[in-house]
Structures are given as structure tokens and as C-alpha cells.
Write a protein that binds this DNA or RNA. Structure first.
Lengths: 109, 109
DNA sequence: CATAAACAGCCTTTTTATAGGCTGTAACTC
DNA sequence: GAGTTACAGCCTATAAAAAGGCTGTTTATG
């Protein structure tokens, strides 16, 4: 099963089901997980039934499930060259390069 | 750097920075990503500056970045025994077992 | 410096999430 | 069947996120 083949709402639902399975694997109730994650019981219920939640709540829930490091793999740090890192740490942040030579819509204006 | 050593808000901020780096690695602007993900520009800005968003928005953004399958690793399907799977597929869903023998607060009643 | 793009920060309105409670039902124990 | 637990679904009020626009600053180019 690949997420790329699912719709957005299907991904959300699948995520909720996996969280439920993980919770049940740990033999915990929704109320217990909600208390440990410091979120309302409603948040767990809605998440597990595919209604979604905020990323903040997801982080709390992942931590309560002992899966906070799994978030690390969500967007792993891409290969950033030391030079680019230096620029990132510099004045501001690198903007998407291209500038004038990369205008999209109003190219002939 | 491990997420387990970070606070919830720090995890959120780190996630935002990684998404920004991924976006910049793909040489795209916030406005381009917002359009591709079908979210408001504000959502990208807030996310990248550590203000968070909904999981629905995160899914859209991950898909627009070509990272939708990374969500797959967030909560990988835990090892579910065939027997348990049968119960899951059965009438309802397995509830956290324990029942009366697992009461927490009023255990001496 | 002038121009243009990229972005942060702030604002208003609409939509959604959150907390908490309450009801009905399924599952388990006796 | 009675009692208990776990959960879905619905409800109200509050908080936060979303969309869209506007301003000022930074970055890059000329």
C-alpha cells in the first residue's frame, strides 16, 4: 500500500488507523492516550476516525506513543552543502533563485 | 539531532525548517508550493516559521513536495498478528484489553 | 540607487480544531 | 441478563487555522 496512490483524505484516514493500531498494540485506551498526550479525548477519536487534527496535536500524540523520532523520517534533512548552510546561517535565508530570469506568468509584460 | 530531545514546539519548528529546505532544494517559492499544494500562502509561511498547521495541510504540502510516501514511515504498520487482524476485521475493533482487572484509579473498590 | 522577486508580519473574515459533556452501542466479565 | 469498559457520534463554546490582502524588509540584478 502506497500513500502516493491515495487521496488526501484517504491518507489521513490511513494515518488514523495506524495510530489506532499502534495504540492498541500498546494496550492503551483512547482516554489514556489523550491524557498522556495532553489533548482532549475528542482529538484522539477524531484522528482515529479520519477527521484529522493539527500538527501540534500529532506531535503530542506521537510523543505519547513513543514515536516522536518517527517524525524525524518525515522530512529528513536533505543533503545541504556546507556552502549553502553558511548562506542559510547568514543574513537571512536563501530565496528560491532565478529572480527575473524565472518569471512564470507575466513573461511578456 | 533527535526529536526526542526537543520540545513539542521545537519539533514543530524543526519540521518547518526542513520543509523549507526541501522546498529550496527544489528551487521553488512559497507561492509556487502553496499553489501546487492548494493551500494559502499563509499556510506555507506559518508552517515554515514554526507556527504549525493542520495534518490535512501537511499532507497536501508533502504531496506537492513529492514526499507523500514519507508519511508512510511516520506510523508504519506495526506487526499485527493474523489472529489480531482477524479480530480487527471482525465485528468491531479490538478494544484495549484488561477490563476490570486493569482499572487504574479505583483499584481497591 | 532603482527595480523586481521572495518573504515576514500583521490584519479581517470564514472555517476548522479543541475541550468537555452526554447518549447509545458493542465488547467483555460475571 | 446485569454491570462495566471502550468507543462513536453529536452538541456547545472557545481557540486556532485558513484564505486573501497589504506593508516593509531582505535578496538579487542592473
Amino acid at each position: 500500500m502506497e500513500f502516493s496512490s491515495l487521496s488526501d483524505s484517504a491518507v489521513l484516514a490511513e494515518l488514523g488507523e495506524r495510530i489506532r493500531r499502534e495504540r492498541l498494540n500498546q494496550n492503551r485506551t483512547q482516554a489514556e492516550l489523550a491524557a498522556d498526550a495532553r489533548v482532549g479525548l475528542n482529538v484522539i477519536k477524531r484522528l482515529e476516525t479520519g477527521d484529522g487534527c493539527t500538527v501540534s496535536s500529532l506531535i503530542r500524540i506521537a510523543r505519547a506513543l513513543g514515536k516522536i523520532d518517527a517524525l524525524d523520517t518525515l522530512f529528513p534533512e536533505p543533503g545541504v552543502s556546507p556552502l549553502q548552510l553558511a548562506r542559510l546561517a547568514g543574513r537571512r535565508r536563501k530565496q528560491a533563485s532565478g529572480g527575473r530570469g524565472r518569471r512564470k506568468g507575466s513573461g511578456n509584460g
